[in-house]
């Protein structure tokens, strides 16, 4: 797990873009050329560029999935039922996220805080599942440096796991900041942006789940 910690440290600094994005300009953006808020444009562009990042990791995995040494390959190690449940959990967290965003639209503060917490809890169980999966693979002999398959698998799912953990921290921090009213900008927009990030991390998992777990080596 120490790799996950350092991974988190490295990737976290890679994500500053969107937090910083929140700090954009003031409450209720002044009139802009397209009538849209800078933060939302910035966030969608950031998600567009993240497609390239995860695309690179996924294609590295697809290239190296067959190169497992000594017959410890994808077919022997993947536990499909468990992973499909974790995909179901991440999908449900997307649902609760949307409910949080629509609650924020209705300025219903109690439900916003509630749904954000539920989303974070579901995300935490998903990451808990990932940590369990990594531990059991490690016990079965699949270390980070065992083979190319294992290095690229851990890199891809580790990156995604770190992005989900950063998402959980953002969700819970936003709950804290809402309750103490420390959010400088437009609160509904902050919730919406965190929602966009969370949904993006979910659709990346949809792609990973199908390409990595379901398609046999």
């Amino acid at each position: 797990m120490s790799d996950a910690a350092t991974l988190e440290a490295q990737v976290a600094h890679d994500d500053h873009g969107d937090h910083g994005g929140h700090g954009g300009n003031g409450a209720g953006h002044p009139p802009t050329t397209t009538g849209l808020s800078h933060n939302k444009l910035g966030m969608w562009l950031f998600l567009g560029s993240e497609c390239l990042l995860f695309g690179g990791l996924i294609s590295t995995y697809m290239l190296y999935r067959g190169r497992a040494s000594e017959n410890l390959g994808p077919d022997q190690i993947y536990d499909l039922p468990f992973t499909s449940v974790s995909s179901f959990v991440l999908l449900m967290s997307s649902l609760t996220m949307v409910l949080a965003v629509s609650a924020a639209g209705r300025k219903d503060v109690r439900n916003v805080k509630l749904w954000l917490t539920v989303t974070a809890l579901l995300g935490a169980t998903f990451v808990g599942g990932q940590v369990y999966e990594f531990t059991s693979f490690y016990r079965e002999g699949l270390g980070f440096t065992t083979s190319l398959f294992s290095s690229s698998f851990y890199a891809l799912t580790g990156f995604h796991g770190v992005h989900v953990s950063v998402g959980i921290i953002m969700l819970l921090a936003v709950v804290g900041m809402i309750s103490r009213d420390r959010i400088p900008g437009d609160r509904a927009e902050v919730v919406e942006l965190v929602g966009l990030y969370w949904h993006f991390v979910d659709i990346v998992w949809i792609v990973i789940f199908t390409l990595v777990y379901l398609i046999p080596a």
Binding site: A120, G128, Y132, I169
Partner: peptide, 24 residues
């Protein structure tokens, strides 16, 4: 504030992640 919120969030998330993975 800037340290409390993230650390609190990490603590809550971490507890859930750790205990859930041990149960699993």
């Amino acid at each position: 504030g800037p340290l409390e919120f993230p650390l609190l969030a990490t603590a809550v998330g971490g507890v859930v992640v750790f205990s859930f993975s041990r149960i699993m």
